[in-house]
Computed example of a mutant assay.
Amino acid sequence: MMYIDEIMEHLPHRYPFLLVDRVTEIEKSKSIKGYKNVSFNESFFTGHFPDNPIMPGVLIIEAMAQLSGILGFVTVGRKPSDGLVQYLAGTSKARFKRPVLPGDRLCMESVIISERRGIWKFDCRALVDGEIVCVAEILTAEREV
């Protein structure tokens, strides 16, 4: 289990762009699970959409990328404070199955597919109440800053 203070050690993101609230499971070099509590107070709901609030799909992808980045950092035993970042480098096979609404808990899972020369590939999925809302392959690029 990883709580918000430790999550913030493994991600450079901060409010309003930190999209991982808790890591529930992590197996170094293999997989990670975590979640984002989606509150009606999220700033993006103001414009997406005022009468029908839905979490933007790009933020679901970003949340899965952030969770994957934590796994990458833990796997190499480094943190952003060591001068390392993981950029979202790409996504493929993304599919959205249902909307994510205020009050939902966005549960995410990421599994390492491969890593070559700092380019990580992850198989990700996001669920709400056990129902898949999004699947995607995500690439991150590990870089020194």
Score class of each variant (00 low, 15 high):
residue 1 M to N: 03
residue 2 M to V: 13
residue 4 I to A: 12
residue 4 I to T: 04
residue 5 D to E: 13
residue 5 D to I: 14
residue 5 D to F: 00
residue 5 D to V: 15
residue 5 D to A: 07
residue 7 I to E: 05
residue 8 M to K: 15
residue 11 L to R: 03
residue 13 H to K: 12
residue 15 Y to G: 10
residue 16 P to G: 14
residue 17 F to L: 08
residue 17 F to S: 04
residue 17 F to E: 01
residue 20 V to A: 11
residue 20 V to N: 08
residue 21 D to F: 07
residue 21 D to A: 05
residue 24 T to Q: 12
residue 26 I to C: 06
residue 27 E to M: 08
residue 29 S to A: 14
residue 30 K to P: 01
residue 31 S to C: 08
residue 33 K to R: 15
residue 33 K to I: 00
residue 34 G to A: 11
residue 34 G to F: 10
residue 36 K to H: 05
residue 38 V to S: 07
residue 39 S to R: 14
residue 40 F to E: 00
residue 41 N to A: 08
residue 42 E to S: 05
residue 43 S to E: 00
residue 45 F to W: 10
residue 45 F to A: 07
residue 45 F to R: 05
residue 46 T to L: 15
residue 47 G to C: 08
residue 48 H to I: 09
residue 49 F to H: 07
residue 49 F to M: 08
residue 49 F to W: 08
residue 50 P to D: 09
residue 50 P to Q: 09
residue 51 D to M: 12
residue 52 N to T: 05
residue 52 N to A: 14
residue 52 N to P: 00
residue 55 M to T: 01
residue 56 P to I: 04
residue 57 G to W: 08
residue 57 G to R: 10
residue 58 V to S: 11
residue 59 L to S: 04
residue 61 I to Q: 02
residue 61 I to H: 01
residue 62 E to P: 00
residue 63 A to D: 12
residue 63 A to Q: 05
residue 63 A to H: 06
residue 65 A to F: 08
residue 66 Q to I: 04
residue 66 Q to V: 04
residue 67 L to Y: 02
residue 67 L to P: 02
residue 68 S to H: 07
residue 68 S to L: 07
residue 69 G to D: 07
residue 69 G to P: 12
residue 71 L to I: 15
residue 72 G to E: 01
residue 73 F to D: 01
residue 73 F to N: 11
residue 74 V to P: 01
residue 75 T to V: 12
residue 75 T to I: 09
residue 75 T to M: 04
residue 77 G to K: 00
residue 78 R to E: 06
residue 78 R to K: 14
residue 81 S to A: 15
residue 81 S to V: 12
residue 81 S to T: 04
residue 81 S to Y: 02
residue 81 S to C: 11
residue 82 D to F: 10
residue 82 D to R: 11
residue 83 G to A: 13
residue 83 G to E: 14
residue 84 L to N: 00
residue 84 L to R: 03
residue 85 V to A: 10
residue 86 Q to R: 06
residue 86 Q to P: 00
residue 87 Y to S: 12
residue 87 Y to G: 09
residue 89 A to C: 04
residue 90 G to E: 00
residue 90 G to D: 00
residue 92 S to R: 15
residue 92 S to P: 01
residue 93 K to G: 05
residue 94 A to W: 07
residue 95 R to G: 01
residue 96 F to Y: 11
residue 97 K to V: 06
residue 97 K to I: 06
residue 100 V to R: 06
residue 103 G to V: 02
residue 103 G to C: 09
residue 103 G to W: 13
residue 104 D to A: 04
residue 105 R to G: 01
residue 109 E to V: 06
residue 109 E to S: 09
residue 110 S to L: 03
residue 110 S to W: 02
residue 111 V to E: 05
residue 111 V to Y: 11
residue 113 I to S: 10
residue 113 I to G: 02
residue 114 S to Y: 07
residue 115 E to Y: 11
residue 118 G to S: 08
residue 120 W to Y: 14
residue 120 W to P: 00
residue 124 C to V: 14
residue 124 C to I: 13
residue 124 C to S: 10
residue 124 C to Q: 02
residue 124 C to H: 09
residue 125 R to Q: 13
residue 126 A to E: 03
residue 126 A to T: 01
residue 127 L to Y: 05
residue 129 D to R: 14
residue 129 D to T: 03
residue 130 G to K: 13
residue 130 G to L: 12
residue 132 I to H: 03
residue 134 C to H: 07
residue 134 C to L: 13
residue 134 C to G: 02
residue 134 C to S: 13
residue 134 C to A: 15
residue 135 V to Y: 02
residue 138 I to A: 07
residue 144 E to Q: 13
residue 144 E to G: 05
residue 145 V to T: 14
residue 145 V to Y: 11
